[in-house]
């Protein structure tokens, strides 16, 4: 188990190194630079050049690359060109929106998907199952940003229950902040829940066909206990995989939803930074996200071992 984890960690590290080189050199091709953008139409060339020097943009490609990666090692992400504050501060501010949003929608989607999946599996082939699966088929097909638009129209514009967009900040109090995250979380959660429900159902059906379930049934255990205690526990592997993937997706893939609701999250930060050529922000956030994906995958693998004792002994 330890050897396996070490091997995985080494692979993750390698991925990070390659990713840093790819991101840095790819962004190098982007036309235009931050200095010119900051100073706009009327700026004279020498003012722009002076700003470039101030930002360190006049240095060579390799110098900047090693300066940046060297900083990353000591968790120094550098300073944003446009905001001229440490990138880590910007990221922390934005993660305070993205992280709760991702967690809430993940919790929401799990809370919907697991019962629906189990329910459908227990009533396989019956109308309830067909209905649940038809609904989930629809859920998978709905683009989350369109669903978000409809939610805004109904709950914010029409009923005026929640704000249509923007984020008041956690300093405004937990409730106003949470209120601003409700619609985005629902918009993100529902399509995810549809996928998760389908995975749960089919994983359960796989397990229900296995011998130990038949044994449990033969022992006279009630159906509900068989389902929740024995079957679901063993069906968790694919469900966990999907959950891990979804978390990684939710953290960065929310950029479109953040656009719909004007949430100052990580996705929007990267989006803005690309347009403002604030490349150091783009590079650092992408690296952070890549690292998150690697860590989450690692965690999923570890929980595999926890859920399935067979795997624990195997490696």
């Amino acid at each position: 188990m330890t050897a396996y984890l070490l091997k995985r960690a080494a692979a993750g590290l390698l991925t990070l190194v390659v990713a840093s080189a790819v991101v840095f050199s790819v962004l190098e091709i982007l036309p235009g630079d931050a200095a010119r953008l900051m100073l706009g139409f009327n700026a004279t060339e020498d003012a722009v050049q002076a700003l470039r020097v101030q930002m360190g943009l006049d240095q060579g490609f390799l110098v900047r690359y090693f300066h940046w990666t060297g900083g990353l090692l000591s968790l120094d992400f550098g300073r944003s060109y446009t905001y001229s504050v440490p990138v880590i501060d910007l990221v922390a501010e934005r993660a305070a929106v993205s992280l709760p949003l991702a967690l809430i929608s993940l919790a929401l989607s799990t809370a919907i998907a697991l019962p629906v999946g189990v329910f459908a599996a227990a009533r396989r082939g019956r109308p309830a199952d067909t209905l649940a699966m038809a609904a989930s088929q629809f859920g998978v097909a709905v683009p989350n940003f369109w669903f978000a638009l409809l939610l805004v129209y109904v709950f914010a514009v029409w009923l005026r229950l929640v704000p249509a967009g923007g984020f008041p900040g956690w300093s405004a109090g937990a409730w106003p902040a949470l209120k601003a995250l409700i619609l985005p979380a629902i918009a993100l959660a529902l399509p995810q829940a549809a996928i998760l429900a389908r995975v749960t159902r089919s994983a359960l059906l796989d397990v229900l066909g296995e011998d130990f379930i038949r044994t449990a049934r033969a022992k006279g255990l009630p159906q509900r206990a068989v389902l929740w205690r024995h079957a679901l526990r063993n069906a968790m592997l694919p469900v966990l995989t999907i959950l891990g993937l979804q978390f990684a997706f939710l953290l960065a893939g929310t950029v479109i939803i953040e656009n719909v609701f004007y949430l100052p999250g990580l996705g929007r930060l990267v989006f803005q930074a690309i347009n403002q050529r604030d490349l150091i922000v783009v590079e650092s956030v992408v690296m952070l996200l890549v690292a998150t994906v690697i860590v989450v995958n690692l965690l999923v693998d570890v929980s595999y071992a926890l859920v399935d004792p067979r795997l624990r002994t195997r490696t």
């Binding site: 914010a156 514009v157 005026r160 704000p163 249509a164 967009g165 923007g166 004007y262």
Partner: peptide
């Protein structure tokens, strides 16, 4: 000064008094 990047969000914010 609240940053509201779009009319779609500005109108509800105005109507609700925020």
């Amino acid at each position: 000064f609240r940053i509201i990047p779009d009319a779609a969000a500005a109108v509800p914010a105005l109507l609700s008094g925020d």
